[in-house]
Amino acid sequence: MRLEVLKTYKIYIGGKFPRTESGRYYIAENKKGDKLANVCLGSRKDFRDAVGAARTAFSDWASRAAFNRGQILYRIAEMLEGRKGQFIEELIKQDSSRVQAEKEVELSIERLIYYAGWCDKYQQVFSSVNPVASSHFNFSTPEPTGVVSIIAPQDSSLLGLVSVIAPIIVGGNTCVVLASSAKPLCAVTFAEVLHSSDVPGGVVNIITGKVPELLNWFSNHMDVNAIVYCANDKESIQKIQQNATLNMKRVLLWNHQQWPQLSSQSPYLICEAQEIKTTWHPIENIGGAKSGY
């Protein structure tokens, strides 16, 4: 019998797969108590490095053509489709039944395709040309908020992760994600999918670790523009909202979403990590006649 080659589960920062700088690990187990992997126990400094990578990646990603972002999102779906088997096996290891696992992976692929299509459409749906009373051309359009920290749904290994990352990066933001602590395997494997999908390094950074340890840093970092939180813990929500005041971070509470349902995919989630920019420019008046839109 052949000896199985075990995989090292590392974190994903700036398009690279380092181990946590802290050198710490925790053991991921399933319900039966089988040891699944030694997983990086990410630290505050890992998070800081990841924010740095996300900030560096932001201007390029935000200024990509919307069409290009759409193609890359679709590419992620393609890569995920090709590695379906690996994700199904990992989900089964993390207590899913085969049927559940297959469903979760398929839904994750469909979700990416759903959002890929939005890349060059939400701007049209949520923009406006504003008929101001003076002779000006005036329009408002969504722009990415910037660097977003995400505490991914903790009860889901893959679908929750995909469902929160997609609407953030579709809109030109970059992000740092804390994966599910209890079910971290798919997050690391998903980073490998991202890595082979033309997603520029730093656009998505994935850290494994513990929510109670990292929540404070995820919400008080001064170079993070928004934070996504998906659980219902009241104390944590209050802490996040208070920390957010330091630099007026936008707080996105996605705690009422049922990720397996289609109702939890929506362009309104994209919009929550967008700022509306309004631009004015005068219009020349010719022959005394006013002009406008």
Partner: peptide, 9 residues
């Protein structure tokens, strides 16, 4: 310049 139709913030 300001106008009721023009979002501000």
């Amino acid at each position: 310049k300001f106008d009721p139709t023009s979002p501000f913030g």
